[in-house]
Design a protein around this nucleic acid. Sequence first.
DNA 1: CAGTTTAAATGAATTAAAATCATTTTGGTA
DNA 2: TACCAAAATGATTTTAATTCATTTAAACTG
Lengths: 228, 228
Amino acid sequence: MSATPRNTSRERIEARESTILDAAEGIFSRSGFDGAKISDIARAASVAEGTVYLYYKNKRDLLAGVVGRFWSQLTQGAEDAIDPQADAAQQLEQLARYHLQSILDQFEVVSLTYRARPQQEQDLDQVREYVRVFDRIMQRGVDRGELPTDTPIGQLRDVFFGTLEFSARTLKLRGQAYDHSIVSNLLLLMLGRRHGDAGTNGGNNPSNRDLMQRLESIQEQLEKRGAW
Amino acid sequence: MSATPRNTSRERIEARESTILDAAEGIFSRSGFDGAKISDIARAASVAEGTVYLYYKNKRDLLAGVVGRFWSQLTQGAEDAIDPQADAAQQLEQLARYHLQSILDQFEVVSLTYRARPQQEQDLDQVREYVRVFDRIMQRGVDRGELPTDTPIGQLRDVFFGTLEFSARTLKLRGQAYDHSIVSNLLLLMLGRRHGDAGTNGGNNPSNRDLMQRLESIQEQLEKRGAW
DNA sequence: CAGTTTAAATGAATTAAAATCATTTTGGTA
DNA sequence: TACCAAAATGATTTTAATTCATTTAAACTG
């Protein structure tokens, strides 16, 4: 009967909502929350100002919509980026790379996240769901014996996401691009083994002659400086 | 002559500015950036609305003032919290505890930080200065041979602050309080010693490699000093 | 397919709050 | 005490979010 009555209608409406979200994402990213004007967003979406309010109660709600969609898509992308066959360490690396790359690409949207409505619990639902991707990888690793039984998943989660987010911020601040070594060092740190990016300058033990040369070089420097 | 002409005057003005900052901090923390009204802040500071604009160009600038002061005070507090006699590992633990405790206590102000003016470089100056406290501890540890020469300070900095910030967010989200174990686990992770990892530089008879590292560190210090 | 009903869209009008500025007050100085 | 400049005030202006009476479009009906 009325099981699927208004079919094309629903599609049109969803398309329009998505258009508004696209416009909002663009304007919010470019101008930040305060700088973005609803009138700009409406214009970018080819819609009247009032129409925006049919879909979202207010400006914050609209931001929550943008941010929520971003994290949902991120969850989907992460699941696609992870090879179900791989072991925990490999999967973790895949997730780390995907995550760092994504938050660098869409840094502005990420920045808007913790601004949506910090007090309103429910707005972080999609973030929580995303974070569970990490938990699943780790839990599976523990279950299969690839990771120690006492692995503190919850705390490692904070290390994982916290470090990557902060690294991204640092990179952005310095105008630098994606850096592989961040991921490898993080994994080394989390999964045991010491840092130093594999055998940076291997463990060849210097001879006494090397040491003496070095000492002489230091002494020269000191003499050059005199006054000290 | 006019070296210190308006003395009490300057004091009064600074006191007033500080009063406005106090009021703004309170209102911003309670209501968030958007929720805070300049009129509320003015009232809380017992000042006319227009007066606020004599001290700060606009609302964002006022927020930047609040946030900047917070991080300056944090830097001061951190320096006080660190025992100059202690070794690097101990100092790091002191900083970690102080940091986690502080950002939990003043979570709202911290949240407002990355919202101040993400694009405007200079607003993060005080944050950068704060972060240097960590760098100094680590560098000193390396210089004294307490930490390996190849310690990737920059990356560990992201691990340190990223993890603590994310942990704080997690704790707040769950309504939980300060947790010692976060700090100890983080330090364990950062400074080695994992899963009975067999001491990287365990034995107390130093190898030539250790000696060489120490020499290199001394030389680096000399060079750094020379550049001035 | 014309007529009717309901949903969606519009943008002018309203409201709220930031920012400005002409005027007043204050504190220091001669 | 009179004067000046700095500081403060708050009424006014401006800007942008939100509402709502009206219009337009879509879906349904017989």
